[in-house]
Structures are given as structure tokens and as C-alpha cells.
Design a protein around this nucleic acid. Structure first.
Lengths: 200, 200
DNA sequence: CAATAATTTGACCAACTGGTCAAAGGCAGG
DNA sequence: CCTGCCTTTGACCAGTTGGTCAAATTATTG
């Protein structure tokens, strides 16, 4: 029964999601209006609602897409690889996302700050399980003496915190750095931090 | 001309600011309504507006108070002290704020994510100057060989990022840690991070 | 206790909100 | 060119929003 989307549908749905991402990531769900999204997408409000059932539908559609990209890098972490390399690679992947998809990061941040009303289940379910698995791996590495003993959970938190900071607090970072590109120094600093934390 | 506030004024203004802090920190300025704040404060909406000119006035009043507490710990950093001790003390001060004043942290986060429309000037002015001064101090310490060479700006960012993460992403952190108190491990991890980053 | 000032409220308003709907406009295949 | 479907829109609606105001209520003070 699902007819494949026409060209026009694809284009407009993409435009709406792109506009929604921009608006929702800045003002959060409650602070955003359909008119803002419609303007940004270059469509009329009723036209938006022809493609999406409701404001909520646009938002949850964005969140769903986001969660995939959010969890994926975690899965790519290879227990067989070199500990420092693996964690560094993960951190860099996250930093790249902050650099190239800051709106996604801010959307996520907004949702969490609001209390994660729509993704709390994923956090307590899928995400937690994933992190638990990785914690086991990291503890294993530490037990083998391949890295220093660290709390794996807080290690992961610090990678998240630092990398997402460059997207979520972009305005503040740039206010302080002036013309210097934040991401130049960020990567080196991230390396230094992980190195100091992990290398025996 | 400024008559001192009566008991009733003090009580109600405090109630309004407390309610405003709760509401604004969760939903941001645009996502919050005066009715929410009024309910939370246990006052009627017109009564709110008897004490504050507008929604904006409540919000900016909160931001002003917040900025003081936000900048103060930075000023307490003593260039004469022991580098690692000083930075560690600063980080712990920030972590304590995240633990005991998470709403303030989230209010700040919301404002920044929105693009800091009301405090951009402070960021580019007062905050930037302060950070610049501290950067000089840190660079001095490094030049004297008392700490490893680090980018002082990104060092400060990582302290901010990590400490505020525990307040702003509280829901996510607790979703992952379950019953474990985040702030137990956080302080130790913060120490480990700074130690690894600073100790030669 | 009366008078004055501070506080609280219900009724109200214009603008905005998310959402509906019937009708009109456009576009493909025959 | 016509038919049928996809797309777009203007008009509209009920509920919410920030904010006003005059009147009522409650302190405070001489």
C-alpha cells in the first residue's frame, strides 16, 4: 500500500525536516512554532501539515533520525582494536559530528535538558545497554593493563561532554576564541586529554 | 527614591524568581509561559506582573543573577597558587554548582544554545577578558615548566564541558548510571583528567 | 479606627498558536 | 485535451499567550 514517494514529496519532506531541525534545535519543541518552520521551509503552514500530521510528528521524525546517528558510532567501537586508538577514533567521530552537524547536537541537547520526555526510554534502554557493553570492554582493557584504570562511564561522559560542548556552546566558544577556529585546537586537546587519561 | 522592599515583596519576588528559574531552565525563554511560572510560584498571572514588568523582566533578572555566580569562580583563581591545585579547585567549584544548582546551569545552557541573544555581549566582553587573563596565567605556568603545555582555552572549555554536563545532561547521566550517584565518580574522574592533562 | 498605601484579582484584549477544511491549482497518463 | 490524482492555499476555528485595568481586598500607619 505504501506508494514510493514522488519527487515533490521527497523534496518537500526534506525541506520541512531541514527547517524543523534548524528551528527546533534553537528553540526546543515548545519554543518553536509551525509558522517558523513553514517560513524556513518556504511552505505554507497547511502545506506543512499535508506532509506531516502535526508539529509533534515533525519533531519525533527528527529525533528518530537523530538517534540512529547518535548510537551508531558507539557500535563501531571494536573490542579487538587498540584501546587508545579505538577510544580516540570514537571521540574524533563525535567531534566531527559536532563540527558538521551542530544542529543535530543542539536538538539532542534541548531534548535532554527538557527532561528527555520523548527519548527517556531509549536512554534507559538501548543507550544504557550499549554503554554497559562498552564499559565491560574498557574495564577489560584496564584489567589487562593496556590502559590505566578509569571509570568507563565517566570516561564516556567526558568524551560526550567535550565533543558536544563545541556544538552546543558554539556561541560561547567562538565568543572567547574570536577568529580562531575552535575545531583546530579541539582535536589536539581531545587527544591530549585521552592520552593523559588512558596511557599508563 | 528606592523604597526598601517590604517583607511581602521580598517573599513574592523570591517565589517568582524561583519558579521562573525552574520553568525557564526547562523550557527556555520562548518555551515557557507566564501561566506556568505563576502556577509554580503560587500567584496569579496579573500578580506576577505586579512584581515584574514582563516575562522578559523575570528572565533577564534571572540571567543577571546567574552571570555573577558564573563569573565569580573564575576570579577566585589565584595566579600565585599551585597550578594543579588552583585548576582543580576551580573545577570542583564548578562541579559543586552543577550538583547544587543544576537549574542555573540549565538556564545558562538554554540561553547559549538559543544563540545567547541576551548575554552575547557579556560573553564577548567580560567573560572573554577574564578567560584571556587566565589563559595568560596558565601559559605562564606552562612556560615555567610547572605544568605540561596545554592550550589554556581548550583546557577551560573541557572543565566547563565536563562539569556542566552533569547538570545539563543529568537525565541522560542518570539513565545510564541507574542508582549510582553521578557526583560520586565525577569528582574523582575530574581529578584524573586534570592530573593527566597537567602533570608533567 | 480611619485613611492611606500596598497587594490581589477577575474580566478582558489583541496577537498568536496548532490544526481543519473545502476549494482551487497543477500535473501525469491516456 | 481531458480525467483523476496530487499538491497548495485562503479562510477559518478554538485555545493559548503576554499583558492591561479598574475594582476589590488587605496591610500599614498616624
Amino acid at each position: 500500500m505504501n506508494k514510493p514517494d514522488t519527487r515533490i514529496q521527497k523534496k518537500n519532506q526534506a525541506a520541512i525536516l531541514d527547517a524543523g531541525l534548524l528551528v527546533f534545535s534553537q528553540f526546543g519543541f515548545r519554543g518553536s512554532t509551525l509558522d517558523q518552520v513553514a517560513d524556513e521551509a518556504g511552505l505554507s503552514k497547511p502545506n506543512l501539515l499535508y506532509y506531516f500530521r502535526s508539529k509533534e510528528a515533525i519533531y519525533t521524525s527528527l529525533l528518530a533520525k537523530l538517534l540512529e546517528n547518535w548510537l551508531e558510532p558507539l557500535r563501531e567501537l571494536d573490542p579487538q582494536g587498540d584501546p587508545v586508538d579505538e577510544l580516540m577514533a570514537y571521540a574524533k567521530r563525535k567531534l566531527d559530528m559536532s563540527q558538521h552537524f551542530p544542529r543535530e547536537s543542539r536538538l539532542f541537547a534541548n531534548e535532554i535538558i527538557q527532561g528527555a520526555p520523548r527519548i527517556g526510554d531509549v536512554l534507559r534502554g538501548e543507550l544504557r545497554e550499549l554503554v554497559d557493553e562498552i564499559a565491560v570492554v574498557i574495564n577489560g582493557w584496564a584489567a589487562e593493563g593496556r590502559i590505566k584504570a578509569v571509570d568507563p562511564y565517566h570516561l564516556i561522559f567526558s568524551i560526550w561532554a567535550l565533543t558536544q560542548h563545541y556544538a552546543d556552546f558554539d556561541v560561547q566558544v567562538r565568543a572567547i576564541l574570536g577568529d580562531v577556529d575552535p575545531f583546530d585546537g579541539a582535536e589536539k586537546h581531545l587527544e591530549a586529554m585521552l592520552h593523559g587519561l588512558l596511557t599508563p
